[in-house]
Write a protein that binds this DNA or RNA. Structure first.
Lengths: 231, 231
DNA sequence: GTCTATAACCGGATAGAC
DNA sequence: GTCTATCCGGTTATAGAC
């Protein structure tokens, strides 16, 4: 059962060959002609399945993210501690991506180019993004987290942005097993949780800080939402 | 006096024509053939002066930054307040860049691609970077700033990274006169100054936070230093 | 309609003649 | 220093095969 159709077989062949070449020679250095030829099809065929070279990478990212979200359920079931949940989910994400860390550089390098479909913040990735933010929301729901009311709405977005920052940092991190990112993750996540707790206490200047957090979050979502295709 | 040589005239011609076209039609949409033809030279001639299309943008960025640093002296002379000094220097930077904000998008979009010469973090920009960090150091020297000793060495780098973040945010900011960035700048700079003051006080968890700041700064400089050319 | 193959287009970049 | 001719690779158009 679940034999792949000939079409799907070709598609998969192109994908795996592409990923392989990208990993081996780098993204820019692998031409579509190369990929098609190695996969035993014509250039046109490769373009029939994937409109742009970048879509080969995008497909990989999509699959990994889908797999990640499936496994989130189990992480949530284990504990009510928000810090533990979020930490485990981020680790899950990194683990799933780890075989392709070098390839993820393509996403990272183009991350700030929202017009480029391969950026995690592009329109093409909107679905993944919405889903990922929903995922963070699931982590929050039913956890022990308590925050200032003004943060409630934007919290999933903020935390997702933080998660993305960690993933991008990890992508560039050349220390063995990315231990520097691991260290930073532990320290920074703890700090975030402390700050969220503090957000409930009366503190001088609290208003200004909350205002700042809101303004930067709104700018970030603005910019991302505005992300448009190449003209 | 100071008549430009014929060679320099051609160079300048290509530059201005390029900048014009970029502003009018966008960077990707303006081909080198276009630029060369409009400037009245052959494609090869344009490439004789600028190895890559991106170098046309880079040259603009270099010139603006050089002009900025010249004017820093005057800002420093006006006050000893670190907050005021740094604020004014950032404003100076934004003002100088403002005629080319759209063009600066090319830098911003490629900022995370350190292999791309147009990224503010590329090897090609190392000189500008070192100089800019030195500039921040000048602002610190003789100001009223006081910070925890463990931050002293890395402070110029941290603050320069913050400055870059503001410039990049500003580049994307489509609110009128980039007032959203302006608002965020005021709030965040004030917060930074407060945090620097606090860094001198005994506070629970201070060690962890300082450690975190150091670890992320060292990662950032690592990654940037490692920035290499396209293979 | 689903897929494949070939040729062509476009633009960044280079080589080498003058 | 300037030009022409050329390469190279992403992408598209097109013509057909199944």
């Amino acid at each position: 059962m679940s034999k792949l159709s000939k079409s799907d077989q070709t598609r998969e062949k192109i994908l795996t060959v592409g990923w392989n070449l990208f990993q081996k020679k780098g993204f820019e250095q692998s031409s579509m002609r190369d990929i098609a030829q190695t996969a035993g099809v014509a250039t046109g065929a490769a373009y029939y399945y994937f409109k742009r070279k970048e879509d080969l990478v995008l497909e990989l990212y999509k699959r990994v993210q889908a797999e990640c979200e499936k496994q989130t359920e189990q992480v949530i079931a284990k504990t009510k501690s928000f810090e533990k949940r979020f930490y485990d989910v981020i680790q899950l994400n990194l683990k799933q991506l780890s075989p392709y860390r070098k390839l993820m550089l393509v996403l990272a390098e183009n991350s700030m180019n929202f017009k480029n479909s391969v950026s995690p913040f592009s329109v093409e990735n909107k679905k993944i993004r919405t889903s990922a933010i929903g995922n963070v929301n699931k982590i929050i729901q039913g956890s022990n987290i308590k925050v200032h009311s003004s943060l409630l709405n934007i919290l999933p977005t903020i935390l997702w942005l933080y998660e993305m920052a960690i993933v991008l940092l990890w992508t560039y991190d050349s220390s063995t097993h990315q231990k520097k990112t691991q260290q930073f993750l532990k320290l920074s996540l703890k700090l975030i949780c402390i700050l969220l707790k503090i957000s409930l206490l009366p503190i001088p200047g609290k208003k200004g800080i909350l205002q700042m957090v809101q303004s930067i979050t709104s700018m970030a979502t603005d910019i991302i939402q505005r992300s448009y295709k190449k003209p």
